[in-house]
């Protein structure tokens, strides 16, 4: 699709990709409205909205602290165990929430997508905003936590956004693939929570990566979320990172490749979307 002279719209078989990104810019206001809708709906019943996004990390934190910290007595390098877990729950929740919302976004908005045209990429993109708001709320709780435990972050904190960005990119990269698969296969949605659950346990959320043997670390950090979590702990708690730099670097490239592939597969899906749903 392209915009010709004097506001002429040309619809061609096989559609031209050339102006897709310009179209995306053209519809930026709709992006704001979609994001605004998601936030509004989630926080409509204010008390419950906030409670909801606090309850999840807090209960997980309690369970992990009891199981990994108390029962398994895993090391925490002097950081209070609840803080260790919560600092990982923040980026994990951001990642898992975005991934889940992204995956289901197309199917959830099917009634919209089969009736009006706009670049479909806006729909999964809008889910980022509501998850960032959730993150901010949970972050405020965490700040209170740190004051309670008397842990103060240092200058490392300035690098926090870089790690969060990587978490978001990872979520969107996988989310775009999942969103397209969700449209293609109606039972794919059952698989997504399973994958997220699995990710929670293989990523160093409930424990510190210190428990991973040195010789495995390269492979362990191929999971980009392992790198993100250790990075966030480094940024907030000033812990010496136990990253495997080569593993982490490779994982960043993997995410970028996944993201490009995700956008391409999403674009391909988008063209036949209305015919399938």
């Amino acid at each position: 699709m392209e915009r010709g002279s004097d506001n002429e719209i040309v619809i061609q078989a096989g559609g031209s990709v050339a102006n897709y990104w310009r179209d995306l810019w053209h519809y930026r206001e709709l992006f704001v409205f979609l994001a605004w809708r998601d936030v509004l709906v989630r926080y409509k019943q204010t008390a419950i909205g906030i409670l909801w996004c606090v309850l999840k990390p807090v209960t997980t934190m309690v369970v992990f602290t009891v199981i990994f910290g108390r029962l398994a007595s895993l090391p925490s390098n002097g950081v209070p165990y609840p803080v260790l877990v919560f600092s990982a729950m923040l980026p994990w929740q951001l990642f898992a929430g975005t991934l889940t919302d992204c995956s289901s976004s197309l199917v959830d908005n099917a009634n919209l997508l089969t009736k009006v045209y706009f670049p479909r990429l806006l729909v999964p993109a809008a889910t980022l905003v509501v998850n960032l708001v959730d993150f901010a709320v949970a972050g405020a709780i965490f700040a209170g936590f740190m004051v309670w435990y008397g842990v103060a972050p240092g200058l490392n904190l300035l690098l926090l956004p870089a790690f969060l960005l990587l978490a978001l990119l990872t979520a969107v990269a996988a989310g775009l693939w999942f969103a397209a698969l969700n449209v293609r296969y109606r039972d794919f949605r059952f698989l997504v929570p399973l994958l997220v659950q699995f990710g929670l346990f293989v990523s160093p959320v409930g424990f510190s990566s210190a428990v991973v043997p040195e010789s495995w670390r390269f492979f362990y950090f191929l999971n980009p979320m392992a790198g993100v979590i250790e990075g966030v702990r480094w940024a907030i708690l000033g812990e010496a990172p136990r990253l495997s730099i080569p593993g982490f670097t490779l994982s960043i490239f993997l995410v970028l490749a996944l993201l490009v592939g995700g956008v391409v597969s999403f674009r391909r899906m988008e063209r036949s979307f209305a015919d399938v749903v």
Binding site: G4, D6, N7, V10, I11, A13, G14, K115, Y117
Partner: peptide, 23 residues
């Protein structure tokens, strides 16, 4: 015409904004 689905062959030229009471 409302750009919800793409044609398999051929094309359409539209001058101006399209809105639909279908929506």
């Amino acid at each position: 015409l409302s750009r919800i689905t793409e044609p398999s062959a051929g094309g359409v030229r539209l001058r101006g904004r399209v809105a639909s009471l279908l929506e």
